[in-house]
Design a protein around this nucleic acid. Structure first.
Lengths: 336, 336
DNA sequence: TTGAAAGCGATACCAG
DNA sequence: CTGGTATCGCTTTCAA
């Protein structure tokens, strides 16, 4: 196995200096004729820049990173892999890392990525309130996905119009005659903007619905405990519909319902706040709010590449919700 | 923002040469006393090795890579992210890349990973027959997952005992009284060992079942076409059970069945050859063959790290199947 | 337009 | 046990 050719080899081949070859190869200098000659020689030798040497020399690694708060969650897992795929499809090298639900690890990975000279970051943050985001965003183009990063004005973001999503769900359920709504939301606040709690309450009030809030730990932490609590809450409150704000919990609720002998959607409407691929096959029908996956990915990637290539400043894109109705009961509360 | 301290800075601080410091920090040399002093100084300065400089100097990047044939497939996606998570959990840096169903890209990514000096590879190969695997495996510890790499004796592998899986499925269906089996398998052969086709036929013959084979394109390629073909094949052959070998097609079959007005499992048994997280919620019940995910991940990661740390030679681990029965009809063929 | 030379931040060989 | 010093392969001033 013969060694890979280096810049020097190419230089020797064309009788120029490595510097000149370097510039020529990147199209930064040289007469058209020189460039062509260099290109040809490089091609002939099968020369490829060594990304590591380049990174050491100029501080850029040529690699973008996707940092995911937790790939345990189906939707985030799909998002993360789609982002990587989109980047690769645009001929960028991309790597995916996963904080696995641990905020400390999120921080550690961030340091790691800095060390690795990641040129840009796509982040589904675990803790959007963490102060360190601004420091990172200041030195590296960064696009947050899902929620704005509270303390990082330098970061771009692709955010979901949660309030609009809530309104969509509440409208839908109200129109079907539901009066009591059980809302599952994450234990820790996650949106830097108006708290989900407030928005949901407000939307519900506008439609005359009663809301019961149930805070659940992040998905995957302890899969069983919350199911029991959900089942209990359903019985206790007599809610006829469950709205799952915490990503990934709609499936758990379906499991809980099944255990409790509740039929979905005949006895209970379940609405998720995301739209995973398998939702159409799950149970007899799970209604979800969908944030057009492709649009999210496309927007985020475009933002990042723009920032990278054209040094555009930070910006925020808002993704509108769409309701995908796959089964909700309209049985009025009196009938139960 | 002050510059990160370098090895030189630490050396200056303790009055030693960078070489000595480098060795001391890695615990390769130096009296206990020297090491302690160096450690302390490094700590005090907040020194962290620069992985890029290190990679350039010694050819190792300190990063392991997971190369996935296609993250479009739910099961592979889960596998890939789980592998990354497992590696990170063991304090390794890991990156995930995705060939997205394109064999050429698989090859290109492999080159890329070589350039990036990946220290080890975990691979769910798209094309296990490709000759280039051996070249890669020869220079980098490599563990293949799912199938052996036909031409790469230097690579380790975690393989699924497909034949045993087939037997499990066929036994199960035969016991329920099924006589006609529709088997979906990938267009391209994927197992270097005995072809799936042969194994399935053999297992079926042993139980007196008739087998209809239907070759389908890889998941995600053209989501609609195969569904129609499946529906047609069901009607044409009068099969009472479908066995999906091609990963990810069980869900599509359920969709096809629904469109055709077939009820699962009352009219049709559907068996998948993997066990995705959501299988228990899908439809009224999807029976699957399960390859203990955790065991697969654990085994693969352990193999890779052993090869890395102890220079163990290539080995092969076989994962045994388990049948997860979630709903199959026992309606005898005569009743249809 | 081109080239010589100084980094970038470590590692590893080889003397002392 | 230590410490010069030559790499590793490329980028980038700065002169020519």
């Amino acid at each position: 196995m013969t060694k890979r050719p280096t810049l020097q080899d190419v230089a020797d081949a064309v009788g120029l200096s490595p510097a000149t070859v370097s510039y020529a190869l990147r199209g930064q200098r040289g007469s058209a004729e020189t460039r062509a000659r260099v290109q040809a020689a490089a091609e002939a030798l099968g020369y490829q820049v060594d990304p590591i040497a380049r990174a050491l020399a100029n501080g850029r690694s040529g690699t973008l990173a996707v940092l995911c708060g937790s790939t345990r969650d189906t939707w985030h897992r799909a998002l993360a892999t789609d982002l990587v795929r989109a980047l690769i499809a645009r001929d960028r090298r991309a790597l995916l890392t996963d904080a696995d639900g641990d905020a400390d690890r999120e921080r550690a990975l961030l340091d790691l990525l800095a060390e690795q000279r990641a040129d840009g970051l796509l982040v589904a943050a675990l803790d959007p309130f963490a102060p360190h985001w601004e420091e990172v965003a200041r030195s590296t183009p960064l696009v947050a996905i899902g929620d704005r990063l509270a303390e990082a004005p330098s970061a771009s973001a692709v955010v979901f119009d949660n309030a609009a999503g809530f309104a969509l769900v509440v409208d839908h359920l109200a129109a079907l005659g539901h009066r009591r709504l059980l809302v599952l939301l994450p234990e820790r606040p996650s949106t830097p903007d108006r708290p989900a709690e407030t928005s949901v309450r407000e939307a519900a009030r506008a439609r005359g619905l009663t809301v019961e809030l149930l805070r659940v730990p992040p998905a995957g932490a302890d899969p069983d405990a919350p199911i029991e609590r959900v089942a209990a809450a359903l019985v206790r409150t007599g809610a006829t519909a469950v709205f799952c704000l915490s990503d990934g919990y709609a499936f758990d609720v379906l499991r809980a319902a099944r255990r409790s002998g509740l039929r979905v959607p005949d006895d209970l409407s379940v609405v998720g706040f995301e739209d995973v691929e398998e939702a159409d096959l799950v149970g007899p029908g799970l209604t979800t709010v969908s944030w057009d996956h492709e649009q999210v990915v496309e927007t985020a990637v475009t933002m990042l590449l723009d920032a990278l290539d054209h040094h555009t400043g930070p910006s925020v894109a808002v993704i509108a919700p769409r309701l995908v109705v796959r089964g909700t009961t309209s049985r009025p509360p009196a009938a139960r």
